[in-house]
């Protein structure tokens, strides 16, 4: 029984490694966006460290994702957690970066992470909450705040036009 389980895990482990390898481009994209102006070498270094750490945890069976999708979420968690530490000091994008990057850099780290997980990486609110280690309700609050702040900052820099803030005082309710 134990040998069978070990065999199944090793097969799953190999599949997970393949999945993580194939997903490297999206991890790079997320790390670059999360850094909001950091260079590609720093962002790639972050991805490298995060995946290395995840690999060690997989081998030690500290995490046991059931499938490829679960493994990708673990990778996003690792990248987000490491970036929260590495990107503590807000980046200052150079003048050649578009206004949207400057707007992202001005956001609080978790606000930016939630916005990117939902808008760029396409995660639902539950998955984004899991990755960012916050509640689903907090995901919505941070998403609302990030979009409002981003609209203000890009409007001030001549980017996306600001829209009326008539809904800014609307009662918050999470869509079930």
């Amino acid at each position: 029984m134990r040998l069978l389980f070990a065999g199944k895990y090793m097969s799953n482990y190999a599949d997970i490694l393949v999945e993580l390898s194939e997903a490297t481009p999206v991890f790079r994209r997320y790390a670059r966006a999360l850094g909001a102006g950091v260079g590609l070498v720093v962002a790639d270094g972050l991805v490298h460290s995060a995946l290395q750490g995840l690999g060690a945890r997989l081998r030690a069976r500290e995490v046991t994702p059931n499938d490829a999708e679960a493994a990708r979420i673990e990778a996003y968690k690792a990248i987000t957690s490491l970036a929260a530490h590495k990107y503590q000091v807000a980046s200052c994008p150079g003048p050649r970066h578009p206004p949207i990057v400057h707007g992202l850099a001005a956001l609080d780290f978790t606000d930016r992470a939630v916005l990117l997980l939902v808008s760029l990486e396409g995660f639902g609110y539950d998955a984004a909450a899991d990755i960012a280690s916050i509640s689903r309700e907090t995901v919505f609050m941070r998403l609302q705040r990030a979009r409002a702040l981003l609209a203000n900052s890009t409007a001030n820099s001549g980017g996306i036009p600001q829209v009326s803030a008539a809904r800014s005082s609307a009662h918050l309710r999470v869509v079930k």
Binding site: L46, L51, K86
Partner: peptide
Amino acid sequence: AAAQVAAPSGTIESGA
């Protein structure tokens, strides 16, 4: 990277 074993003296924070 996920298949690599990190150097014992610490994490190499670069894909290098």
